[in-house]
Structures are given as C-alpha cells and as structure tokens.
Design a protein around this nucleic acid. Structure first.
Lengths: 174, 174
DNA sequence: GCTAGCATGTAAACGGTTACATGATTAG
DNA sequence: CTAATCATGTAACCGTTTACATGCTAGC
C-alpha cells in the first residue's frame, strides 16, 4: 500500500521524498503515521525495479533533494495495481480507501467500475462480527455495549458505502 | 492485535488453537484472514511470557489438542492492554474495533469510559484526507468521484461513531 | 546561539504472509 | 476410499516500526 501511494502521488507530479511523505501523511497519516524507515526503503525498491527515476538536485535547501518521477514502466505498474487489486485490497477498508484515492489514474471508466463492483459484492455478502450457534448476532442483541457499538458503526458505514458505490457505478457506466 | 484477540477470547473460556482461530476469524477474518503462521507463533510467545498456560489433551480427535487458558499474569496483562491502549489502537479504526470487542473485560466502567473518550477526542479533532493550500477539502469539491466517495463514507462513519460514543459514555457514567 | 523545519538515510527487531509439512477423524 | 474437517506446527521472506544518525537553513 505504501508503494501504491508513492506511485499514485508521483503519477500526479514529480516530488522528492520529504514532500511525498507529507502527501501520504495527509492521506492516512492521522490514522497511521508514515515512518522514514518505511518510506525511503520503499522508494529505493521502486527505483531498483525501474518504476521510479531520481535526479539529485543539490543546493536548493538542506540535504540534497532527490526529485522522484514515474517512468513509463512505473505508470504501467500503477495501472496494473489499480486494475487488478489483490483480495485484501478489496476486503480491507483501509487498503481499499488507498486504492480509491488513486483510482482516477485508471484511464478506462469501465475498469474503474469493475473495481467498485468487486467491493460491492464483498459488502453484499452478509458478514457479521459475531456468531452464536452459527447464526449472525444482531446489534441489539450483541452481548455487551461495546460490541453493540461495533455492529452499529459497521452497519452505518456499510449502508453509506453501498449507496455511494451504486451511484458511482451508475455514473461511470453512463 | 492478534495477541490481544488471543488474550481476549481466552479470558472468556479456555480454548485450543484451532477453536481460537475460528473465533478470531469470525471477528475479523472477513477483512483479513488469520494465518496459522501468525497464530501459532503468537500463542508460543504468550506461553513463553507466562500469560497463557497449555495442557496437552491427547486422543480427543486428530492431532493432540493443546488446551490454552489465561494465567493470572495473562489476565492482568489483558487488562493493562485494554486500560492503556497505544495511540495506534485509538487512531486506527481496525485496531480500535479489536479493542472494543474485549473492552468488557475491563472491570471498571470509569476506565472503559476513559478509553471511549480517547477515541472521541481523536474523532473530534478535524481531520481531512486531502488538503489544498492547507485547507481541508470538502466532499463536494473533492477532485474526483472516488475521493468524493472516500470523504462521504468517512464522514458518515464518523457521525455514527460519535453518536454512539456519546451515548455509551453517558450510559457508563450513570 | 538555539530551535524548528527541511531532507535523507541505515540497522535491528518484530510480526505477518505464504508455502510447506504432517497426520488423525468423520461423513459421504 | 476419499474428501473435508480437525489440529498443529516450521521456515523463508517481506515490509513496518523503532531507534539511531547526519547535516543544512531560517527565524527568533
């Protein structure tokens, strides 16, 4: 997901590491901070894989900046990641949100809709946090206050997301 | 979080690894599957730390079962984890939900309310996924359909969760 | 002169994923 | 007899966290 964010932001414009960190932080930093120890090695991996190019710009300020930009291979790779997300990127809300943040970089609206449809069918499959004797537990009868809250919030989220997905798929297909 | 789930479920009753896996799966397995390669080493860690005891029950069925139960130290440790969650367990919805699933095991309602209040103040701090010129971006004016969706869903979730938190804290304090 | 912000990196430890490996019991 | 389920584990790999490390520039 970190790699996807790097590729995604670089698709918009060339950036150096520090600025990239700020962008990623504004995307998901309030939930989970971005550490240098994750970011710089990830950049190095992408450079080694030929997906990202770097030009060192000395002087401007402080340590010499490495301005990063996507290569053609990088752009292709980003699109592939968006087009064919792994299961975990569909089921895990956190990861799916990261995907959504960059889904506009998939040029074909039909392919965008396809990704949304995968999320939709995941949400349509009835899932409940707790089971008692094999039966899903309803919010009202959950064993305690806290589990009631989990169910209530999860349900409200699912309702809103399903509504949005339906609208968005409609819009993309017209 | 895996360790918390193990301690949490064992607080309710002694279980063997396979049954533990089923419980954890029903909690969060639809979002992210639980792998044996994570579960069994986690159990071993907890046993080594003296938080979990195991009795091998041969014969019952298939491979010999190791029935796991919490030690006194394990119960104390679980309560400490619930009482003083790390920041990431408050800010990350996924982890906070895991916390919620076992918060009933904190005996003091005032301490339960304190945990909810931490989540509340995190949600009350204005956070926006995207910033343009330092200003948070509103859902309606987000750059594309997908980011609009992210903002819309995130907002609906926050609204519902805040409402529940307020009610729950009220209930716990009366 | 000092602190905050800019800017980049490395290394150890940790935890999780994936794949491999084994073997018993039960239902069809 | 054979597939599904029960039941437990190991090992290689991978990415993240945490801590450490460096040094410049701008404003107070």
């Amino acid at each position: 997901m970190l790699e996807l964010s790097i590729l995604g932001f670089l698709h918009e414009e060339p950036l150096h590491g520090y600025e990239l960190k700020a962008r990623i932080q504004s995307l998901s930093g309030h939930i989970r901070p971005v550490s240098d120890g994750a970011l710089y090695p990830a950049i190095t991996r992408l450079v080694k894989a030929g997906l990202v190019e770097q030009r060192t710009r000395p002087g401007s300020s402080a340590a010499p900046r490495r301005t990063l930009s996507l290569t053609a291979a990088g752009r292709a790779d980003l699109e592939a990641r968006l087009r064919h997300p792994k299961d975990a990127e569909i089921t895990d809300g956190q990861r799916f949100f990261t995907l959504l943040a960059f889904l506009r970089h998939l040029p074909d609206p039909a392919e965008q809709a396809e990704v949304l449809r995968r999320r939709q069918s995941f949400l349509d499959a009835p899932t409940s946090f707790f089971y008692r004797d094999g039966e899903p537990v309803r919010a009202e009868e959950a064993s305690d206050l806290f589990r009631q809250g989990m169910l209530r919030v999860a349900r409200a989220t699912a309702v809103e997301e399903k509504a949005w997905l339906a609208e968005a798929i409609e819009a993309l297909e017209s």
